[in-house]
Design a protein around this nucleic acid. Structure first.
Lengths: 145, 145
DNA sequence: CAAGAAAATATTTATCGCGATATATTTCGC
DNA sequence: GCGAAATATATCGCGATAAATATTTTCTTG
């Protein structure tokens, strides 16, 4: 039996996702630097702009991250003055995250980040939305819906 | 003028790519653990299985990584006995990476990793190949071909 | 042609992000 | 009340980026 050689790099969907994700993050970086955010921090802010007052675990669920990843990340955002962390009085196991005025104010500048992808890719928003749907469908399939 | 609020998380293509890439990496992890590789190390091995004897800079170019990322990664792979690093006698600025027999032998077990994505996603290989093409096209557009 | 500037290449260092594991701490069920 | 579950934190190693450094090669130019 001859062994099946692994496919060349170009055929690996995992590499396409990996390198595309990195490329987008590099595109965002200059704008995020101006906002004082890293990319995962930016994802947390998007989550909180949509719904404030979430617990750490809820943010972790939304972003598919471990709470052990989020805790230091949120501590840094708190030190930046963008949010406040406090125990939930009704369930002291939980830590509730609340945006400060400064954190809310950052929301207005955030659309510049997304614009960056649209302009750099030179693709229509319809095309980008279509690819978004495909990739989300793939992810859902991989994690089992 | 009211400010444009950023779109909800689901509309962000960057998050779709990011979370899909992470999901695939988590799927691969158990198999890669058995091989003693991390995911970026696996990408390096795929590159070298396709063409051995590359310089650090060529691997960096292929994977869109910085040499400062690759140097410690390659040092770890060397310590694992999978490859050898040595200066190119013809151009002493370069460091040539060569697979050991152990590194070459690992190639036969590697298709198990890819199988993992195909089976977990429950999508046809045609479908996966089509998405691969879409994502690659997006990446190429973002980085400017 | 030779000397020095510039470019190419890899490494080092520092900082942050992320995963995995282990460890509290609190709450809930029996 | 005690054990089990849920939640967050601490710790350690690897990865990614940027900036600084070192070395070699190539270019320029007097």
């Amino acid at each position: 039996m001859s062994e099946i050689p692994p496919a060349p790099l170009a055929d690996h969907l995992c590499f396409a996702l990996y390198s595309a994700s990195m490329a987008v993050q590099r595109t965002y970086k200059p704008v995020l630097d101006e906002l004082g955010l890293t990319y995962p921090q930016y994802l947390v802010m998007i989550t909180l702009w949509a719904e404030d007052g979430l617990a750490v675990g809820q943010i972790a669920e939304t972003l598919s991250l471990e709470s052990s990843t989020l805790t230091p990340l949120l501590q840094r955002l708190e030190q930046s003055g963008l949010l406040v962390r406090r125990r939930d009085p009704e369930n002291e196991r939980r830590v509730i995250i609340t945006l400060t005025d400064k954190g809310k104010a950052l929301r207005g500048q955030a659309h510049c980040v997304t614009d960056r992808l649209v302009s750099s890719s030179q693709m229509s928003t319809e095309e980008l939305a279509r690819i978004n749907g495909e990739v989300r469908r793939l992810r859902a399939a991989v994690v089992g819906e």
